[in-house]
């Protein structure tokens, strides 16, 4: 019915590699491909420095974090059996940002300390875990989205309070900018900092793949096939929180990649919630890397923040999905 999945994954991988190369080449100083290659393999000089020290970490982070968001979105959609599920709609990045800002604002930790991602993960864990606890086993879309709105609003209020109480205005301003979401000036230290959390997140979410497929029959149907629903929910919550929390701790709030990425590949690979996970992760990596290229190409006095771009693309996209699925949503169990 659909073209072979391996061919789609190969195509997406090639796209990701191409975007990564472009991401290494573009910026304040555009570099020819030869210079990029020379820089990558350890060439001296300013080009080597730019590629290795500035653009390589930035590109790796965009790939890793974009992939994680794509995977997290696909996983939440699989668990909740709903194509509109997305970490940002459940307040996860917002709560992670609140946790991370708390650490930074009051000087509990430097920006490259493990305390920041841990606080981000804790924030995401509270929002996603709390949300699924409230939504309960019926996972009605209305309840889930309303609870997500509540968590996102509360996380926003908590962040505002932290800014409000920040010990000095410079820190408050710094956090406010950081919250917009960016990959500017990130280093290989950041990569090392979050990679373990991201890897664990990928493993936990991948373990749920066949359970997500079985959930096509609903929770009772899946449970009757031997799927441990409680374990699946727990693995998904922890997996998404680890991925989103750690990512947000490095980038600031970035949303909607998890909504857009699975949707873009669904037409090509079909709706199977297990089979969509790898293509969704690749599409997420491509999306975030592409967006990060766009923010560097837009001629503006200050660089436009990545989180701003993903939200500007993601929210209209979300609205268009609501419009398209309106009939389905109106018929959905409230």
């Amino acid at each position: 019915m659909h073209p072979p999945r391996s061919r789609i994954n190969l195509g997406l991988s090639l796209l990701v590699v191409a975007l990564a190369v472009v991401s290494l080449a573009v910026g304040a100083a555009s570099l020819p491909l030869a210079a990029v290659w020379h820089g990558l393999i350890g060439g001296d000089g300013i080009a080597g420095l730019i590629v290795r020290e500035i653009r390589l970490p930035r590109t790796i982070l965009a790939l890793l974090i974009g992939g994680t968001f794509g995977l997290a979105g696909a996983a939440l959609q699989g668990l909740l059996r709903n194509p509109l599920a997305e970490p940002a709609l459940f307040g996860a990045p917002q709560a992670a940002a609140a946790g991370a800002s708390l650490m930074i604002a009051f000087g509990f930790a430097g920006v490259t300390s493990f305390a920041v991602p841990l606080a981000g993960i804790a924030g995401a864990l509270i929002s996603i875990g709390g949300l699924l606890a409230i939504a309960g086993h019926r996972t009605s879309l209305t309840v889930t989205l309303l609870a997500g709105l509540a968590f996102a609003s509360f996380a926003g209020a908590a962040t505002a309070l932290i800014l409000n109480l920040a010990p000095n205005p410079y820190i408050a301003l710094e956090i406010a900018f950081w919250l917009l979401g960016s990959l500017e000036d990130r280093s290989s230290e950041h990569v090392v900092l979050i990679l373990p959390f991201l890897l664990l997140s990928w493993v936990l979410l991948s373990l749920c793949a066949s359970a997500f497929r079985a959930l096509t029959l609903g929770e009772d149907g899946a449970a009757s096939l031997g799927v441990d629903i409680t374990r699946t929910r727990l693995l998904t919550v922890v997996g998404v929180a680890l991925g989103v929390g750690a990512s947000v701790a490095v980038t600031g709030a970035i949303g909607f990649v998890g909504l857009v990425a699975p949707h873009l590949v669904r037409r090509a690979v079909g709706s199977d919630p297990a089979r969509i996970m790898l293509p969704a992760a690749l599409a997420g990596a491509a999306l975030l890397t592409g967006s990060d290229i766009v923010v560097r190409l837009v001629p503006a006095a200050t660089e436009i923040k990545l989180g701003v771009v993903t939200a500007l693309i993601g929210v209209p996209f979300f609205l268009s999905m609501i419009l398209r699925e309106r009939k389905f949503l109106e018929g959905a169990p409230a």
């Binding site: 959930l215 029959l217 609903g218 096939l225 079909g270 709706s271």
Partner: peptide, 30 residues
């Protein structure tokens, strides 16, 4: 338990537009 006991719930709800054969294959999950 699932290998010994198959359950056909009320309503036949399917949450994703999978092909009928893919739905049938879910029966092999256990």
């Amino acid at each position: 338990r699932a290998r010994l006991l198959a359950y056909l719930p009320q309503g036949h709800a399917f949450n994703w537009p999978l092909a009928a054969a893919e739905i049938v294959a879910l029966g092999r999950h256990p």
